[in-house]
């Protein structure tokens, strides 16, 4: 009997959710589910660089915002189909990733971290001063009332984000299992040793930054249509930065499923908290969970699960 390839599982889950989205009538679930899926993309994308190679990117908001404002620019120019905006956002974000990575990754890793931290703030400044996209006033995107083949536009956006989440997870998984993933893991363990084993460290790091940033940009492109009113503060919100770090750390960084677990868990908690308590408390919850996990369970939920399994195996074998 041949083993079922494991990439089939994310695909099946995505198909199941797609089927569900056809049945569920309440639009709130689409609305909330979109956010969860968006965080699956951001967390998986972050993990490709951060989790696999150990380089911290604080600037997820920058890449996400590039995607969002990229879509705004296109929307103002000729209102292309959403897919075009997604591809455009992905390309621009990954080019910004290329430049940032090339300038800072030759140096110590923390310079990259600091540069990404500043990147979100500076891009926000640029957009604030760019009247074409509305400057500080923001931009209203008019979304069609309906779209062929979908019950509603929100449902359409949900399905698009579902597709992006599936792509992000499959890309992350493919990288993890390929020789690129092995090379990134070697970099994470010891970069000098990796280089001396023939690993082209700079090229791999730049590649990972581009893929990671590109996916984040793609996740940002549908955002203007999702919230309909986009301003610099919501596009470059630091919440994206902390969430996309916290989710992989809490879920577990060494396996592609880790960011997915973390994203679902944290995003659901935050969706519930936003409705029931306050949105400020959201960030507090994420911050406290982040600190607790990195000190108490450094390998995240996946790590806890593996430890439990090893313990059980040992008990069974004795």
């Amino acid at each position: 009997m041949r083993r079922i390839p494991s990439w089939i599982w994310p695909v099946l889950v995505a198909l199941f959710i797609l089927a569900l989205s056809r049945v569920v009538k309440n639009e709130y679930y689409m609305f909330a589910g979109y956010v969860v899926l968006q965080y699956i993309v951001l967390a998986s994308a972050w993990n490709i660089l951060g989790g696999y190679s150990g380089y911290v990117n604080f600037g997820s908001a920058a890449f996400f915002g590039i995607g969002a404002y990229g879509a705004v620019v296109l929307d103002k120019l000729w209102q292309p189909p959403l897919v075009v905006a997604i591809v455009f956002g992905g390309i621009v974000a990954s080019l910004v990733g290329l430049v940032t990575a090339y300038l800072t990754l030759r140096l110590r890793g923390v310079f990259f971290a600091i540069a990404t931290l500043a990147l979100a703030i500076v891009l926000q400044t640029l957009v604030m001063n760019w009247d074409f996209v509305g400057g500080p006033l923001g931009y209203y995107s008019v979304r069609p009332d309906s779209i062929a083949g979908f019950p509603s536009y929100v449902n359409y956006l949900f399905v698009i984000m579902l597709g992006l989440a599936l792509i992000a997870v499959l890309v992350a998984r493919a990288i993890e299992l390929s020789f690129i993933g092995r090379g990134l893991a070697a970099i994470r363990d010891n970069e000098l040793a990796a280089e001396c084993c023939g690993v082209p460290t700079l090229r791999l790091k730049v590649f990972a930054t581009m893929v990671s940033g590109g996916l984040m940009g793609m996740a940002g492109a549908p955002f203007p249509y999702y919230i309909t009113y986009l301003d610099p503060n919501s596009a470059f919100s630091l919440a994206y930065g902390i969430n996309s770090i916290a989710m992989p750390l809490i879920g577990g960084m060494t396996h592609w499923i880790g960011p997915v677990i973390g994203a679902v868990l944290l995003a659901v908690i935050q969706q519930v908290a936003t409705v029931t308590i306050s949105s400020e408390l959201n960030l507090m919850i994420v911050g406290v969970l982040l600190i607790s996990f990195i000190t108490l369970a450094p390998n995240g939920i996946v790590g806890l699960f593996e430890r439990y399994r090893q313990k059980r195996q040992r008990r069974l074998s004795t």
Binding site: Y55, V56, L249, V288, L290, I291, I294
Partner: peptide, 24 residues
């Protein structure tokens, strides 16, 4: 000896916790 990545994330978390505490 496992400083860098987690240490960075730790201070990032501290930053948010203090900021939100002040905000609340």
């Amino acid at each position: 000896g496992k400083g860098s990545l987690r240490g960075l994330a730790f201070f990032f978390g501290i930053m948010f916790v203090i900021e939100v505490t002040l905000l609340l």
